[in-house]
């Protein structure tokens, strides 16, 4: 089963290494990892997607909470959340194919962000299913290069996994 964790960490060197080390030691393959600064410049937020046993993951989560630089860990898998990923894809596009590709882009509300003599670079955001479908539709044209940011997520509504509700954190 896939799990989505959000981990708030102090913005200090080495913190990524510490966090990732806990997963690799227990044989978790990190499926995607996105890191960036939050509303607070001293705090970064990691969104981690891993596949694995729920009990072992619970242990890893507790170990994560013990890291001095980790401020908060939430496993939001079972919650309602909005998740997005951004993908950039460079596809082969002869002038004759450009029209078709631009139609596909339209369907996925993707944008053309660069144009080469024989290539088009597209940008698309969405959830996992959409990104996958987007990739599949481009495949026949020849994807020369593709890069994904990894998933980022926020809880829906007025709930948040941010720094303010640390106290409500259960064990």
């Amino acid at each position: 089963m896939y799990h989505t964790l959000t981990v708030l960490v102090a913005n200090s060197p080495g913190v990524l290494y510490r966090v990732v080390g806990l997963f690799s030691r227990r044989g978790f393959n990190i499926d995607s990892l996105a890191v960036g600064q939050t509303e607070n410049e001293n705090v970064s937020r990691m969104t981690i997607v891993v596949e694995g046993d729920a009990l072992i993951l619970e242990q890893v989560t507790k170990q994560l909470r013990k890291l001095i630089d980790v401020i908060k860990v939430s496993n939001i898998t079972a919650e309602e959340f909005v998740a997005r990923e951004l993908v950039l894809a460079k596809v082969t596009a002869n002038p004759a194919q450009r029209g078709e590709i631009m139609q596909i882009a339209d369907i996925f509300r993707a944008r053309i962000v660069d144009l080469g003599r024989r290539t088009l670079t597209l940008e698309c955001t969405g959830d996992e299913a959409k990104i996958k479908a987007f990739e599949e539709s481009l495949r026949p044209y020849g994807i020369k290069e593709l890069v994904r940011t990894g998933k980022i997520a926020l809880l829906r509504g007025s709930k948040y996994a941010g720094v303010n509700n640390i106290k409500e954190e259960a064990l």
């Binding site: 060197p13 080495g14 290494y17 510490r18 080390g21 030691r25 890291l67 001095i68 630089d69």
Partner: peptide, 14 residues
């Protein structure tokens, strides 16, 4: 040494 001791220290600093 901070890299080496990440898994065997409660915390470390450079």
């Amino acid at each position: 040494i901070t890299g080496i001791t990440v898994p065997i220290t409660k915390h470390n600093y450079l």
